[in-house]
Amino acid sequence: MTAILRAAGLSRAFGSFEALRGIDLEVCKGQRLGIVGESGSGKTTLIKLLAALDQPTAGQLWFAGREITGLPERGLGFLRSSLQIVFQDPRSSLNPRMKVGDIVTEPLRSKLVRRELQGVDRKERLREVLAAVDLPADSGDRYPHEFSGGQRQRIAIARALAPKPEVLIADEPVSALDVSVRAQVINLLADLVDKQGLTLLFVSHDLMVVRHLCDSVVVMQSGQIVERGTTAAVFSAPRTDYTASLWAAVPRIKV
């Protein structure tokens, strides 16, 4: 199996604070990797580095065999089209003054990405991705505030799918949603990953959701990976107390 994403000794320090310390990670094509840990454990810092939205202070990173550490932004077009992110809160990740159609096709208009996606018809692609996330076809002419929280997260997913990525990173995509809507968005993500053969990196503090969606998991604490393995193994027999405590904290019905 070939690793689509590979990190070696990845570190990120902010001043004297080490947010990430020596992360080694390999993500294979088609893998669904959960990244779990409590707030402040470095989950978001890690995916920012993986998506080249931030530069590591030490270590190296490869995407599909090409090293991306130290590449200038204009050299990152291939990464921008093949790796997309869905953020936690669609209220802040969607521009309230742009129509949904413009939001979703914005990745296709980027100079960097356009070069990688020769001949994609924007209108056609908009129709395709809106259908893929189960939004009405006329959604493109409306503004984000006209949609509910769950629908807004679908818009964010549609935007991520627009440039036909290979890797989808979801950073706590359902944490801001009601329980009732959460299941719908998770089902949608699972479905899309299946149908489009995506590689999924799913960041969450909710281990129940990760267990459901991911085949493997890394557990982060204070900027390091403290446990990794298949989801089934890690959650049925956690090796560290920390993982066990994360698992125990998941709210279950108490009667």
Binding site: R182, I186, A190, M208, H212, A232, V250
Partner: peptide, 30 residues
Amino acid sequence: FATPSHPYTKGLVATAQLDKVAPGSPLPTV
């Protein structure tokens, strides 16, 4: 929890029990 009568409540009870769903199968929604 044991015997919800309103259909909406049934949905809420189902969504609150992700541990009962086999990993990989679709989650129940309201």
